[in-house]
Amino acid sequence: MITIENLSKRFGPILAVDHVSLSVSRGEVLGFLGPNGAGKTTTMRMITGFLSPTSGTATVDGHDVTRDPISVRRLVGYLPEGAPLYGDMTPAAFLNFIAAMRGLTGAEKDGRIAETIETLQLADVLHRPIDTLSKGFKRRVGLAQAIVHDPDVLILDEPTDGLDPNQKHQVRNLIRTMSKQKAIIISTHILEEVEAVCTRSVIIADGRVVFDGTPGDLQRRSERHNAVAIRLENPQIAKLRDAVSGLAGVDRVEEQAEIDGTATLVVIPANGQAILHELSACVRESGVPVEEIQTERGHLSEVFRRLTIGEEGRV
């Protein structure tokens, strides 16, 4: 549905987006990750036709965003960064305006608006000026305007920013439900969100794509992928540490003190291989009583840091 080829955007001397290429098809939820200022918003703005690219092309369902912007805009539902809204309008009037702009009329319009209000639970605030609403409601009104016309393509710039954990959960559920029939791009800097809703993640740093793969791939890139954390009473720690350090496949062992007086040994495998079986056998043999053994799947934030501030020598 969405195809981007060598898309670049230059603001004066700054190259905000640097030859980004990606494609998103129906049924995919692409999580767009990156530090602030990496070029996520700029890329999204080019796909939605708000900014024109300096070079490269972006097409949505075959329509080029610069040559046929109106067709693209018709297909896309967009939540801009910060969810800007007309504060003097009520959600009812606002959604009515957006639906009318989207070309919906009559019973179809009323039906779609009612459904959207239902989905995002806006019924209680329908007739209050948007300015007076809480941050969570504003964000939901922003989401409502993006989905009111049931678009094929959904581009959401930080859809859960400013929501409480319950609301975040609801919005993620909503995205998951919609994902089957749509192509969705969400930008976020919350890494769990990627695990929770995305089928694919793209990390962008300094305007360039530094990772493109599934959230699972991303975790496998973590050096803590398949690491095993063992929690035990503090005095025993040296004994167990010596026992496991010698195991084949163990790269190194890290030690961290816990608040409750216990300690955790994190056994990091070489090359992310599975070491749980050997390790648990070794623990049993050593006879040290342990409180808890847990396999880690990898720290996204660590991979994220590594990719974006990088070993590749980028600042």
Binding site: R45, F50, I70, Y78, P80, G82, P84, M101
Partner: peptide, 14 residues
């Protein structure tokens, strides 16, 4: 100022 221009100019309107 309010950023709503981004909303307006990404609606299907020239």
């Amino acid at each position: 100022k309010a950023g709503t221009i981004e909303l307006l100019m990404t609606l299907p309107v020239s």
